[in-house]
Nucleic acid binder design. Structure first.
Lengths: 333, 333
DNA sequence: GCTATTGACGAAATCGATTTCTTAGACTTC
DNA sequence: GAAGTCTAAGAAATCGATTTCGTCAATAGC
């Protein structure tokens, strides 16, 4: 031991001694079981005097579950995920749970490590925004630990998921550009292995086909990151017959795409741009850009609600909640 | 209980039985104590077969400390703090610790709640970016729990702190604007109660005095938020003799200030702007802006190192680590 | 050859709260 | 008034890993 007044950790036994009752009675008072009014008064007085705080570790050991949930996300620096985290935290703390935020940097190995920790820590449940494709979620399911996938659904029966209607979002993003008079609307999306990236492309295709302007020559797969968006846009602009607008499937790539546009001497709305997800703190750059608002915080809230339900014992079949994106993307001021 | 194969939680006793040794021996193997080669082999084999993971709750109860540290920050959606969090997490996880991220929204009541949780959970330590002024850190200190203040120092002896040299940063930000030929350099800073805000102002004053351009009529206190920055800049531009440049004390206010400039038909570098802290994902808007890079990640790393040292038993006097800001802010491309 | 020393390892105590039993009264009910 | 509920509350087991304390045997030392 290092410090001086370290301990000061009052135990239930000390409270019991002070109140002149047994530890069992103290526990009953603290947990709302039947106790005589007199005992309760004594215990509460003693607890207050000693500033007793129950040791959660001991409680957890006995009860065999914790009041902590893990939130595993691929990128803590992406505002979409921090907003999502905030949603989770709001709901979780309202329900008496703490949230441990785990950042995987899109690395399946780190994701796997965190899943292992969640198991070893006996955390109550896990909310997972899957990093790669093959998420190592089997272990959680095998041990019967509640899991909710968020943002992307896991191709795994029995796991709840909360997503947005990416296809509809992609379609309305593209439609809004066509409606504004653009004719060659490109699409920059995420990795082809990622569900959200594919669905957003599909929405774009639907709008494109309706307006009959060619095939996939204006489609680019990138990596959901700034540099990827920049490269993809540069590539599109170098085409013999370049696009005059683009749907960009996430906020980070849009930042890169704007870079590339600027380098080519273009800016919205001269070049039409519709983006999935907002870039907070950048209102001054949103001019002329159509933003499909993603309900990031609501995603987190819905996922947390679902998870807390499972933890509370909800045994029903797996559900997938799909939230609506903003169907009428408008230019921001 | 809900699910089916719930438990499956292998205990040290089962491993011991399988290996034909006592639980004590299993524990010794898992913790690197002296054990015969033969026993070790048997135990490792049994542990592997049963996929044994030690129950951390039980370990924590016995050892009376957890491998979890709390990181309490005022705004999870501010990129500065997420970068800081990442730094903390890097170091902590390298040292075998998990990080619980707590978001206070600048609310002292929430901060206090989280400090209470950190105590009750017997977390190993706390890294605190204090929300308001009077941080309720006394309880932690009273119980001898290690605490490190980050970003702002607490006016409390005995608490380690990690900060940046805000005064020097403020000075070099202003100097770089004067050097570029601007003559009326304003300053938009944070709340007057906040240490970083005051120090940055002082740096600005030093540069201003050297270049002899008036007093504090070009100084505005705002709130470190987007709207505050917008209002402050609008106010400055409405002056009879408005500034031609400004030092803005954080990234969020800079976003607001840029809004106000745009509304007035101004953009950098026509109007000079030097900003504390970067806005990631917004490279396309940094043109012509001088950014004083804040070593957010390094702050987190230093704080974590300090805290882990304390947890390990470092008993020395309280230290304050001051990191250097970027002393030569340049325009970003 | 006989006592120290050392090493491996099992038995059992321990961490602190919860949760069975159990028991002792108090209160009904016929 | 005897037998049958309840209720309150203490004693003790329990959760799972760690750690102290001994024991037993092998090696070292004189």
């Amino acid at each position: 031991m290092t410090g001086a007044a370290k301990g000061a950790n009052v135990t239930i036994y000390q409270v019991a001694a002070r109140a002149g009752v047994s530890p069992a009675t103290v526990s009953r008072v603290m947990n709302g079981a039947r106790v005589s009014a007199e005992s309760e008064r004594l215990v509460r007085a003693a607890a207050a005097e000693l500033a007793f705080t129950p040791n959660r570790t001991a409680r957890r050991l006995r009860r065999n579950h914790s009041e902590v949930i893990a939130l595993i996300i691929p990128d803590i620096e992406n505002p979409f995920f921090t907003a999502l985290a905030r949603g989770v935290e709001n709901r979780a703390s309202a329900g008496g749970y703490s949230v441990v935020l785990c950042n995987t940097d899109d690395d399946p190995a780190r994701e796997s490590t965190y899943i292992g920790i969640a198991l070893a820590e006996h955390m109550a449940g896990v909310i997972l925004a899957p990093a790669g494709d093959a998420s190592d979620v089997g272990r959680l399911v095998a041990y019967g630990r509640p899991v909710v996938a968020v943002d992307r659904s896991l191709a795994r029966p029995g796991v709840d998921a909360v997503t947005v209607d990416n296809r509809a979002g992609g379609q309305s993003a593209a439609e809004s550009l066509f409606a504004a008079g653009y004719t060659r609307v490109a699409c920059i999306t995420g990795p082809s292995t990622v569900e959200t990236a594919q669905l957003r492309v599909e929405g774009w295709r639907q709008a494109r086909d309706r307006h009959g302007t060619g095939g996939d020559e204006l489609l680019r797969y990138a990596d959901y990151r700034v540099d990827g968006g920049r490269a993809a846009m540069a590539d599109l602009l170098a085409l013999g017959e370049p696009p005059d607008a683009a749907v960009v499937a996430n906020n980070l790539m849009a930042a890169g795409a704007l870079d590339a546009l600027r380098d080519a001497g273009l800016t919205p709305p001269g070049f039409g741009l519709a983006v999935f997800g907002d870039l907070p703190f950048a209102s001054f750059t949103r001019q002329g850009i159509r933003v499909v608002d993603l309900p990031a915080r609501e995603l987190g809230e819905a996922a947390a609600d679902l998870l807390l339900g499972r933890i509370a014992g909800d045994d029903g079949p797996a559900r997938t909640v799909v939230l609506r994106t903003d169907r009428s993307p408008r230019e921001k001021k």
